[in-house]
């Protein structure tokens, strides 16, 4: 192993050290920060954005971008509520329809970008707009909950299936009884699967090749268009999973929820570039990025920082992480060439 210079060490482990330092500082100032409940709370607070961020990571890997994830998530939330409350169907059809919707949106995004040659940011921006509007049409802009008035005049009879609500609310005994919410388990499983897919399979490898030099990948016989589309389908499905968890937590289809999902999850994925000096999208970094934001917000909240400073703090973390990635590691990379 080559010996690493101080700058290289800082780039590689700086972000993880910073995170460890934060944990130490918060624990000293507020010993309750170190409790299992606090840890689980942090995980729960980042579960949904974390899942969305892992999806957008897949599109970043192929040098794309998916701005529609937040809208897909809220659409999935509204769709699941509509299916159960108004169509009075069960949890399984609700989940399947949401996943199908996410996959379909991802497919359309991918086709727009690959076949219609619309630039990725614009295609997914358009899709975001379209979905934000579409999800409000069936209910004329109203939130969906049991007992709501339907256009016909009668009240909606259906309700959220208990199994569906479990996804957002059930807690598993782990160390302490009723400690770990199911949504956190879902996050951890998805993070592990995404990591394994991107790092350990040939498909992930090929997607990184496309992101690094699509021309060379195509000349190596790789189906560049197909993998690009796949990335957007993955992103769409992940976003719909996030939406399902959101609906299960809220227990209603709330038109006002989920406004921050897009920015928070994109920030997590971009912060992930700085983790371990990867300087590229990666699943581990994305998970750490989401966790970092969660830890920081939880710690500051326990120190009584007002809620309205949260976005400012997230933005500051993102900018610092981007400087880390592009200025510092870029310089070392250039020196090596």
């Amino acid at each position: 192993m080559k010996s690493l210079s101080l700058t290289e060490l800082a780039i590689r482990y700086g972000f993880l050290l910073l995170m460890a330092g934060l944990i130490v500082v918060f624990s000293v100032l507020r010993p309750a920060f170190l409790s299992p409940q606090s840890g689980v709370f942090i995980l729960q607070s980042v579960a949904i954005t974390g899942i969305l961020a892992l999806g957008v990571t897949a599109t970043l890997v192929v040098d794309g971008f998916d701005l529609s994830i937040g809208a897909v998530a809220t659409s999935a939330m509204m769709l699941s509520a509509y299916v159960m409350v108004i169509w009075e169907m069960g949890a399984v059809p609700a989940v399947l329809l949401c996943l199908g919707m996410g996959a379909l949106v991802g497919l359309v995004n991918g086709l727009l970008i690959v076949k219609m040659r619309v630039p990725d940011l614009l295609a997914t921006l358009g899709m975001m707009f379209l979905l934000v509007g579409l999800q409000r049409i069936p209910t004329q802009g109203n939130s969906i909950s049991t007992g709501m008035m339907l256009p016909g005049g009668q009240a909606a009879e259906g309700s959220f299936a208990p199994e569906f609500l479990m996804l957002g609310r059930h807690r598993i005994d782990f160390i302490l009884p009723d400690l770990v919410p199911l949504s956190v388990v879902v996050l951890i499983v998805i993070a592990l699967l995404t990591w394994a897919f991107l790092e350990l399979t040939r498909h992930g490898r090929v997607m990184y090749a496309i992101g690094s030099n699509a021309q060379a990948a195509g000349l190596a016989g790789i189906n560049v268009a197909g993998y690009r589309i796949l990335a957007y389908v993955i992103s769409g499905v992940m976003a719909s999973i996030g939406g399902i968890l959101l609906a299960a937590r809220l227990g209603r289809g709330d038109v006002a929820s989920g406004n921050n999902l897009l920015l928070d999850s994109v920030a997590a994925a971009l912060i992930g570039f700085a983790v371990l000096g990867a300087a590229k999208p990666n699943a581990f970094g994305t998970a750490i990025g989401a966790l970092f934001v969660g830890i920081l917000l939880q710690g500051l909240t326990m120190l009584n920082a007002p809620y309205y400073t949260q976005d400012f703090i997230k933005g500051a973390v993102l900018v610092v992480a981007l400087v880390f990635t592009f200025a510092l590691s870029g310089r070392v990379g250039r020196a090596r060439r």
């Binding site: 399979t201 040939r202 490898r205 090929v206 990184y208 090749a209 992101g211 690094s212 030099n213 021309q215 060379a216 990948a217 000349l219 190596a220 016989g221 790789i222 590229k280």
Partner: peptide
Amino acid sequence: LINAVVPGFDIQQNLTLPFTPRHA
């Protein structure tokens, strides 16, 4: 540099790029 090198990859990953199915 335009048509063949994948700059983000190491030597090994560049070498096996066209034949990942045979190593999977």
